[in-house]
Design a protein around this nucleic acid. Structure first.
Length: 433
DNA sequence: TGGAATGAAAG
DNA sequence: CTTTCATTCCA
């Protein structure tokens, strides 16, 4: 396999990507039940004194035998969200779910914490009431097994809706996506971009620094692209993966005080006692990850890799979810950019030393086609090579970027994106397939 | 064995 | 229609 090389992404650095976002009072995102005392549960670190019972811990009337599942954090959140919005008429359940989902995704991990706590309490309560309960989902459709010969591969074709956009000084240069039909893709880089300096081009969603209210904006003020539905679980969102990752750091370590059983006890599977957190690995389980997501995840992942161990894992130095400006889009279903640390007998140690050395962030070095990937990467590729999947992921990501930009715009009303500064010579950029 | 798929929780 | 959790399916 000939070595492929893609240049153009501006690597993130531990210091270079941080944008401090000052929350503004007018943006306050609060959840306050009308019948609950003054304190705002969403911002006090404590669980509400008398959380309204959301989940039904009693068997439904229709099927007395059936034991309902305990509500998870989002379901609890959604219930409160619905109460807050119930004055609004004509909003369907589905619409509410969408709004609740948006609001949920804009909440910081700290803001989600009370709901996670309540979900955990509900789970414990559920376990007390139904000691022998075990969730047993039954597959409704049995997939035809043993399909020895896979179907003919779909034509690998990026969505025609995709474009590579280069923003600079208010102007936008667009180019169609690279594709197998494109023998040689040309990178359009605005000459105004300057080499040699590094500046964040991402629009961060920084945990704990934003207070959100966007989801409560009236629909008529909701501008931008149509929200892509997430029906038929296809591509997952990079942002969500990132949130999950950051939560694995920010959720307090499990501590159990026998005198107060309410003390949160979180699932341990998410908190290995020690190890090297490779966000790329955390992203890996994502199902049907698009090449966009794969690239963003692997880039963000390697840059965010943080060696850590309990009980006080350091805060991630990782960049926040990236807005994929032009260089980051330099991928196709056929060629995906990967970051790898230099080969080392001890990968972890290597990573650890790299993180503290001037070799960090790493040079983009390893690019490959799926044939050289491991099984997991091949799975990603399989999903990514589905044009429909690719397009859906791109649309979803675009939508999320819109959300992030709105948040950013609120925090920085005067923010002016003046272009992407690259730390390489644009003239040297080439893209080969 | 672990990634992928998916039922079910509320309304 | 949403996210999360827990499970089964599958290679």
């Amino acid at each position: 396999m000939s070595s492929l090389r893609i240049l153009g992404w501006t690597p993130s650095s531990p210091e270079g990507d941080v944008i401090d976002v000052v929350p503004q009072a007018s943006c306050q995102f609060t959840f306050q039940l009308n019948d609950v005392p003054k304190s705002s549960p969403a911002h006090s670190g404590e669980a509400p004194s008398s959380p309204p019972s959301v989940g039904l811990l009693t068997p439904s009337a229709a099927d007395p035998e059936k034991i309902p599942r305990p509500s998870n954090s989002f379901i609890i959140f959604r219930s409160e969200f619905t109460k807050l919005r119930k004055s609004q008429q004509g909003v369907s359940s589905a619409g509410l779910s969408r709004q609740a989902g948006d609001a949920w995704n804009l909440l910081s991990p700290e803001e989600k914490l009370p709901y996670r706590r309540r979900a955990e309490l509900e789970k414990q309560k559920h376990a007390r009431i139904y000691p022998n309960y075990q969730y047993r989902p039954r597959r409704l459709v049995q997939k035809s097994s043993s399909r020895r010969t896979p179907p003919p591969p779909k034509r690998r074709r990026p969505s025609p809706a995709l474009t590579i956009r280069t923003m600079s000084e208010g102007s936008m240069v667009e180019q169609p996506p690279s594709s197998p039909e494109t023998e040689r893709a040309q990178l359009v880089v605005d000459p105004a971009v300057k080499a040699g300096r590094r500046r964040s081009s991402s629009v961060p969603v920084t945990s704990g620094e934003h207070v959100y209210s966007f989801a409560f904006l009236p629909e008529e003020r909701w501008q931008g692209p149509e929200r892509p539905t997430q029906s038929k679980r296809r591509s997952r969102s990079v942002t969500q993966d990132w949130v999950n990752f950051t939560q694995s750091f920010q959720v307090p370590q499990p501590t159990f005080d026998p005198r107060s059983p309410q003390t949160e006890v979180f699932s341990s599977q998410r908190h290995p006692s020690h190890g090297t957190v490779n966000p790329a690995a955390l992203f890996a389980p994502a199902q049907h990850m698009s090449p966009l997501a794969a690239v963003a995840s692997s880039l963000a992942g390697w840059n965010g890799a943080v060696p850590w161990s309990c009980p006080t894992p350091p805060a991630p130095i990782a960049p926040q979810p990236m807005r994929l400006n032009a260089p980051s889009w330099l991928c196709s279903p056929e060629t995906v950019l990967m970051y790898e640390p230099a080969p080392s007998p001890d990968g972890e140690e290597n990573l650890r030393s790299l993180a503290g050395s001037d070799q960090w962030p790493l040079e983009p070095q390893v690019y490959g086609t799926p044939s050289s990937w491991d099984g997991s990467a091949r799975q990603h590729f399989k999903a990514a090579s589905d044009p429909e999947d690719y397009a859906r992921a791109a649309a979803l990501q675009e939508y999320e970027h819109g959300l992030q930009e709105r948040v950013h715009g609120m925090a920085y009303p005067d923010f002016n994106f003046s272009g992407l500064e690259l730390d390489f010579d644009p003239a040297s950029v080439s893209l080969q397939f």
